[in-house]
C-alpha cells in the first residue's frame, strides 16, 4: 500500500554505507573509517573467510536495476571476461598499470600507469579512472573494466584510500599524483589486510575543481587548507555544509548481503556449469579438427 519510504533509497555513492554480511557482528556507523578497532588477527581471518567480490558486481538499489535475469546474464559475461584476463582486486588509491591495444597504433600496446582516483558504474560498463602527471601535465584516463581492447591490468601497489574517491588530487600538489612508469610492483600477501593510504594531501591555492572545505574527506590536509587557502567568508560558510545527521539516516544504508549471495551463487554456477560446457565444446571442436 504505502509506496513511499518502504523500499531502500537510491544511494549516493559518496555517502553510502555498506552493511554486508561480514560486518553484521560489528554494526559500524560513521563515514568510512578503516578497521582501527579490529586487531590484525581478526582482519586476517575476515579476509580469509570472505571471498572478494569486486564492487561492479554489486548492483545499485532502485527499480531501474532490479531484474534478476538481466543481472544474471550480465554477470555471466563479466565472469567469462574474467576467465580470459585477470582483473585484479584494486581500490581507489591503488597504483595500476594498464596495457591497451589501439587501432591507430597497430602492433604494439599502449601502457599507462596511474593512481586510481575513482571507480564508477556497475556491470559491464564499470569504469575506473587513472591519474598521472607526465611532463608537468596532469592526465586522467577513464578505462572500462570489461573493454576487450584492454590486454592487461596489473596492480603495481595495492592500497586503499580512506575516501570513496580521490578527485581532490586534481587540486593537490603534483607530487601526489606523479607515478613513475617503471615503478616496480610491490608484492602483497593475499591474506594480509589491504594497507590504507593515509597521507594528508596539500592542495594548491584555489580556484579548485570543487569546494573541498565543504566536503568531508579524510585525505585532505584540512589545517593547511584553512590556514593558507581559505578566505574568512569561505571559512564561515564551511560548517553550514556539514551533515552530521547523514551518519544516522538509515535510509542511506545499503545492505548488500542478499546481492552478494546472488553474486556468489552465479560465480559457482559459472564455474561448475558454464565453464565446463565451454571446455567440452572446445575439446569436441579440437577433436573434429584432428
Amino acid at each position: 500500500m504505502a509506496a513511499f519510504g518502504r523500499v531502500l533509497l537510491r544511494s549516493r555513492q559518496n555517502l553510502c554505507l555498506r552493511w554486508s554480511s561480514s560486518t553484521v557482528e560489528a554494526a559500524r556507523p560513521a563515514a568510512a573509517t578503516p578497521d582501527i578497532t579490529e586487531s590484525m588477527q581478526e582482519q586476517k581471518s575476515r579476509r580469509k573467510s570472505r571471498r572478494f567480490i569486486s564492487p561492479e558486481f554489486i548492483i545499485p538499489r532502485g527499480m531501474r536495476a532490479d531484474f534478476p535475469t538481466k543481472n544474471h546474464v550480465e554477470r555471466m559475461d563479466m565472469l567469462r571476461r574474467r576467465a580470459v584476463i585477470d582483473i585484479p582486486e584494486f581500490y581507489v588509491g591503488s597504483i595500476l598499470s594498464v596495457l591497451t591495444s589501439d587501432p591507430y597504433a597497430p602492433g604494439s600496446f599502449q601502457q599507462f600507469v596511474g593512481i586510481c582516483i575513482k571507480r564508477g558504474g556497475y556491470g559491464l560498463g564499470a569504469t575506473f579512472t587513472l591519474r598521472n602527471v607526465i611532463n608537468g601535465q596532469g592526465i586522467e584516463i577513464c578505462y572500462e573494466l570489461y573493454n576487450p581492447t584492454i590486454n592487461q591490468v596489473q596492480v603495481l601497489k595495492l592500497q586503499k584510500s580512506v575516501d570513496p574517491h580521490m578527485v581532490y588530487l586534481r587540486d593537490a600538489l603534483p607530487e601526489y599524483s606523479t607515478i613513475d612508469f617503471n615503478l616496480a610492483p610491490v608484492q602483497h600477501n593475499p591474506e594480509d589486510p589491504v594497507p590504507v593510504l593515509d597521507t594528508k594531501v596539500i592542495l594548491k591555492p584555489p580556484p579548485w575543481y570543487w569546494r573541498w572545505e565543504r566536503v568531508e574527506l579524510q585525505g585532505i590536509d584540512m589545517e593547511h587548507m584553512k590556514e593558507n587557502h581559505l578566505s574568512q567568508k569561505r571559512l564561515d560558510k564551511m560548517d553550514d555544509h556539514r551533515k552530521p545527521w547523514m551518519e544516522f539516516d538509515l535510509m542511506y544504508e545499503y545492505d548488500t548481503t542478499k546481492v552478494e549471495q546472488d553474486v556468489l551463487k552465479d560465480m559457482q554456477y559459472f564455474e561448475n556449469v558454464v565453464r565446463r560446457k565451454e571446455e567440452t565444446s572446445e575439446k569436441s571442436t579440437e577433436e573434429e579438427e584432428t
Binding site: 509506496a3 513511499f4 519510504g5 523500499v7 537510491r10 532502485g62 531501474r64 545527521w245
Partner: peptide, 22 residues
C-alpha cells in the same frame, strides 16, 4: 513501476518534512 507517483518522481522516495534534511 510501483506507482504512477514513483514514475513521475523518477524513483525519489523521501518526503521533505519540516523543510530540509536535519
Amino acid at each position: 513501476r510501483l506507482s504512477l507517483m514513483l514514475l513521475i518522481t523518477h524513483g525519489k522516495r523521501q518526503r521533505k518534512l519540516g523543510g530540509g534534511k536535519p
